[in-house]
Amino acid sequence: MNSPDDTQSSTVCPGCRAVLPRTEWPGTTKYNATTECAEVSGELLGFEVGNAARLGYLHQLRIDAYGAQHVHPDAPRIGPLFALNGLYMFLERGSGNLAVRTAHGIMANSYDDWPRLVPPPQVGDLTASDVLTAGGVDEVESTLLRWAREVWESWPDAERETVRNLTVELVPERYFEHG
């Protein structure tokens, strides 16, 4: 990895603080992320798809961890809330991909006065790049789980409690694996 002061050949992601080699990737991002970090996120998706039998159950968790770590200051209020909702449902309630996506739909259709959630100055230490470069499938799986937990736990208690309360209020109990 390059040092942060090597600005000619690297970038520092404003969301996760990952220092990544500068690339020519033409993508744009809706997140508070450099295009290089968004490219890493895409590569992680590719790794996940290539190992779908093993990692498919973490698909929504990966999306939500990235979203909760890269909250754009001008993002619609629903975005960070949904990312944190997905982390909460997976990590604390045992819900899988389909239950989380269904909960997002239920919530979007039953509420519209979303609170503005303010991320902490640093949303965890691990990044999508750390997950991608962790090694083989076993290491990627365990690092992704640690990354998601770290992102969730880095948010202030009050913000996480807001997400818990809104989720329990709006999402039927059947979408939670355990109580």
Rank of each mutant, 00 (worst) to 15 (best):
V151Q: 09
I78N: 14
G136R: 00
C16I: 00
A83Y: 03
L61E: 05
K30Y: 15
E161V: 02
G179P: 06
S9T: 11
A134N: 04
G46N: 14
D130T: 02
P120F: 01
V40Q: 04
A103S: 12
E36P: 09
T34W: 08
V12M: 04
R77H: 15
E159I: 01
P115F: 00
P4A: 03
L117E: 13
T133G: 01
A52L: 12
G56Y: 12
C16H: 00
F47C: 00
A68F: 02
A33L: 08
R164K: 12
D125W: 06
T167Q: 10
G67D: 11
P76S: 14
F47N: 00
G79P: 00
E139R: 08
G179S: 12
L58I: 02
L20Y: 00
Q122E: 13
S9M: 12
C37N: 06
L145F: 05
G179A: 13
L166I: 05
Y57Q: 09
G136F: 02
I63Q: 11
R174P: 02
L166N: 04
E24C: 05
V118T: 13
G94S: 03
A68E: 10
W114S: 07
R174G: 01
L61A: 02
V19I: 08
G96N: 06
S9F: 12
Y57S: 10
E159W: 00
W114Q: 09
G50T: 03
D138R: 09
T7G: 03
S154W: 04
P73R: 05
T133W: 12
S129V: 04
E43I: 02
N97S: 02
S9K: 12
L61F: 05
L117S: 12
Q8A: 11
Q60L: 06
